[in-house]
């Protein structure tokens, strides 16, 4: 039974939850720290192999646990959609168009940085999407994981796992506080194709606009639902070919394969 075999991770998770919620939300100027941030950061520190607190089997288990546990959060978000269905249907076009922002934003912001840092075809794998599991699978199938594109997507996967949610939690808090965007627009922006980044982004928006919590949840949930349906297909049939074309156009390097 898992509760006995991997008792450490469950006890630690319980302690992390209690400690994180006891600290509670802390604001420093534009920056907001949420309990999810402490839970993630402290959990990460506890899992550092050097400390020998967790075995790699423990960590594998925690990693397998996460996507299923995430479904609870998805259920919570989904339940916020029904009562606001009318409002969401009125913003249907916005929900569709924001997906283009999600899918091309990675290329638009990522590729210039990658090229500036002299990345080669790694840049294609790194910048064509948010590079979560399904996106890694697409690149692995097309190019193989040991190709330059494969190294790019794997690097981004690892890096995104380590820093994505922490970064998004802080970044979104700051952008929300700047007051440039409406909370509903920010909520749609939160539907990034990564579950933990989505949770972190939505949390920061709710923390900044506590009065709009129900509508923010509804918009974030709807945007996330959109991403979950079309994300993989968009990545495979549009994002990847476009990224390859743009990369080859800018650098003048054709794939010689």
């Amino acid at each position: 039974m898992d509760l006995i075999k991997n008792w450490k991770i469950h006890v630690l998770a319980l302690l992390l939850v209690i400690i994180a919620e006891k600290i509670g939300m802390q604001k420093f100027g534009l920056v907001v720290f949420l309990p999810l941030f402490y839970a993630l950061a402290l959990g990460g520190i506890l899992s550092v192999p050097k400390f020998k607190i967790l075995s790699s089997a423990n960590m594998e288990r925690a990693g397998k646990f996460m996507p299923i546990a995430m479904l609870i959060l998805m259920a919570k978000l989904g339940l916020g959609i029904g009562p606001n269905l009318h409002m969401l249907l009125n913003s249907g076009l916005a929900l569709i168009m924001q997906e283009f922002g999600h899918f091309f934003g990675t290329l638009l912001f990522g590729l210039p940085v990658a090229l500036l840092l002299k990345m080669k075809r790694e840049a294609i794998g790194a910048c064509y999407s948010i590079d979560r599991e399904p996106n890694v699978a697409i690149i692995a199938e097309k190019f193989g994981v040991f190709s330059p594109e494969g190294r790019g997507v794997m690097g981004m996967y690892i890096c995104g796992t380590l820093f994505g949610a922490l970064w998004i939690s802080i970044l979104v808090g700051i952008i929300a506080k700047l007051g440039i965007f409406h909370p509903y627009a920010l909520a749609m922006g939160a539907g990034i194709g990564s579950a933990s980044m989505m949770a972190a982004a939505t949390g920061s928006i709710i923390a900044s606009f506590p009065a709009d919590v129900e509508k923010i949840q509804a918009y974030a949930g709807a945007a996330n639902l959109m991403t979950s349906v079309i994300g993989v297909y968009f990545a495979l049939f549009i994002s990847l070919p476009v990224t390859i074309k743009v990369y080859e156009f800018i650098t003048g390097n054709k794939n010689t394969k």
């Binding site: 991770i9 630690l12 998770a13 992390l16 939850v17 994180a20 919620e21 949420l34 309990p35 999810l36 941030f37 839970a39 993630l40 950061a41 402290l42 959990g43 990460g44 506890l46 899992s47 550092v48 192999p49 967790l54 790699s56 423990n58 960590m59 594998e60 925690a62 990693g63 646990f65 996460m66 546990a69 995430m70 609870i72 959060l73 919570k76 978000l77 794997m154 690892i158 796992t161 380590l162 949610a165 579950a195 933990s196 949770a199 972190a200 939505t202 949390g203 709710i206 923390a207 919590v213 949840q217």
Partner: peptide, 22 residues
């Protein structure tokens, strides 16, 4: 909503160690 995020990211955190080598 925030109460649903904390436990999940605690588990996400506890799994991070395996990415450090990579």
């Amino acid at each position: 909503f925030l109460a649903t995020t904390t436990p999940i990211l605690a588990y996400a955190g506890l799994a991070l160690g395996k990415e450090i080598e990579g």
